[in-house]
Simulated scan of single mutants.
Amino acid sequence: MYKRILSCALCAAALFSGTIAVPAGSAAETGVHATSVAMTPGEIARWEVLNYAKYSIYSTVKTDAWVALLSEDPEAASIEFLRSPDGGLVYATQRSLNRDEGNKRFLRRLLETHLRAYSPEVYDAANLYLTESASKREQFCHGGGYEAAKARDQRFRADLGEQKRALVEEDRRYVRMLAEQDPGAQVRLAAGYAVRAGSTDDDLTDFFAWGWAQGARLDNESFRERMLRENRQWQQTIARLIVDAEAAEKAARETEGAAGEEARDRAAAAWRKVGADVSPARSKWEEARDFAHRQAETWHAILLAAQQAAQNPNWKALIDPARATETDWTDNRSLAGENVAYWESLLQKALEGEQRIKNPS
């Protein structure tokens, strides 16, 4: 029964690669409704910084974004935060990517994807090295410590023997299906390694014990990082176009006669350009929202299946990671849904701007 639930869920999940069309739904599905968005650089920047504060995968970026939003002048602080090449976003991202911050993020990911009951060596080491010196963290993460802890955990599971005894051929078939059809590239990679030519039962129990959860976490992080990075590019373009359109509209209102008619044409064209550039961003967020929705449904089905098969130690190990991953994708759906509504609101503002020029009061 639980395998049938999982197969149905996977069949419903479409790959989000940028080349596969995903049907768009309505913003109401996420509980987010388009609100009035002021067409000022400060308001646009403030909205984008809120995205980073809520959804960035880097703790340094989230913290600094909240500092900007809670300042006395959040719009000015948000503009400064996003300023390139030396604004707060760049600086916070660089800090997050330095060697020791990366090692800390890796250790926190291990704690979230390796349960102590199934990977005690990795779990305890990750917990320990988060409080150790930077040099000791480096040694564990990149000097062989992590690999040694993984090997000890594999021996621990092999000595217990219950995971391997619980494996059935249907589990192998299902992991092979994941390797080909899972929506997440990192899950596909982990599953493919577990069932590669020459793989052993230890590789398969490793996949259930931690590989599936770690691949899912990396897929979630990749989704957020990619969408926020692309959104940064869209926001930079649209903010510039809005400034140009508002300047063109102001010039049109101040110019009379034949020159005024030409100025109005230029202003209307400028607002049309805003709308044309808003539409692809909105569509991309719609695709992202629908993909996140499908991922949340898939992981909900995996959670139900793992709970139904909780007497099997391999599936029991997946209960907590599946619950956490479903929550991650529900949050991603909120991120995308909020931005669908935001970009839809900007599109409406652009249409209103063009109509003001065509039908002056």
Rank of each mutant, 00 (worst) to 15 (best):
E101C: 03
E112P: 02
E112N: 13
F106E: 00
L107Y: 01
E132W: 09
R95T: 06
N103K: 08
Y123M: 03
S133A: 15
E112T: 11
G102D: 13
R108S: 03
R95F: 04
E101D: 04
G102Q: 09
R109H: 05
A117L: 09
E112V: 07
S133Y: 12
D124T: 11
Y123T: 05
Q94C: 01
L128K: 15
A125N: 01
R116F: 06
N103E: 06
T113K: 03
Y118T: 08
S96N: 03
A125C: 11
N98L: 05
E112G: 13
N127M: 08
Q94G: 06
H114N: 13
S96D: 05
T93I: 01
Y129V: 09
H114S: 13
S119K: 14
P120C: 10
L110W: 01
S133H: 14
A126C: 12
N98K: 09
E121I: 04
N103P: 00
A126F: 09
R105G: 05
S96C: 01
D100V: 09
L115R: 15
D100M: 01
K104Q: 09
E112K: 15
L115G: 15
N98R: 05
Q94R: 13
E112Y: 05
L115D: 14
R108D: 02
L130M: 11
Y123D: 11
D124W: 06
L115I: 04
D100N: 11
L111P: 07
N127Q: 11
L107M: 09
T131F: 11
T113C: 09
A126G: 12
N127P: 00
D100Q: 08
R116D: 04
R116V: 12
A117Y: 10
Y118E: 07
N103C: 10
R105C: 00
S133G: 12
R108Y: 06
K104V: 08
S119Q: 03
L110F: 00
T113W: 06
R95E: 06
D100R: 05
Y123L: 03
T113Q: 05
N103D: 14
N127V: 04
E121S: 13
F106I: 08
E132N: 10
R105A: 12
Q94E: 14
R116Y: 03
L97D: 11
R95S: 02
R95W: 03
S96G: 15
A126L: 13
D124G: 06
L107S: 03
L130F: 02
Y118W: 04
T113F: 02
R99Y: 15
P120A: 08
N98Y: 07
R109I: 07
R99C: 10
L115V: 03
E121F: 12
G102R: 03
T113M: 02
H114Y: 14
L110E: 04
E101S: 07
V122M: 08
N98D: 10
L97A: 10
F106A: 07
H114K: 09
R109S: 10
E101W: 04
R116C: 08
L128F: 15
E112I: 03
S96I: 02
L130S: 05
S119H: 09
Q94D: 04
V122K: 11
E101A: 14
